[in-house]
Amino acid sequence: MTKDECKQVVLDIIADIAPDEDLSNVKPEVRLRDQMQLDSMDFLDIVMELRKRHGIEVPEKDYQQLASLDSCADYLTPKFDALTGKS
């Protein structure tokens, strides 16, 4: 999976849990919290949707890795690749 594909996975999840947010202009390097109204309940949902849809586990100590789209991609892409056997 490319990092851009990984960012899209996260954006798709955010689009479902926060349909009232405009996602057309999300800056990948800026913290998600600073660009839209996402609280701890929403971040928990991103984590749980990753598990539900993709079988990706994010332990609580790593939640900060999901701060921005870029950090999501850095953190999650290897996990996706590990799942599909491409290390």
């Binding site: 849990i17 926060a18 349909p19 009232d20 109204q37 609280d39 949902d45």
Partner: peptide, 20 residues
Amino acid sequence: RPRVKGTPLGKLLRQLRIER
């Protein structure tokens, strides 16, 4: 009203995946 965020109604709609 729509677009007022961070209130209980908004949280509820998001958490239950309900459209306003």
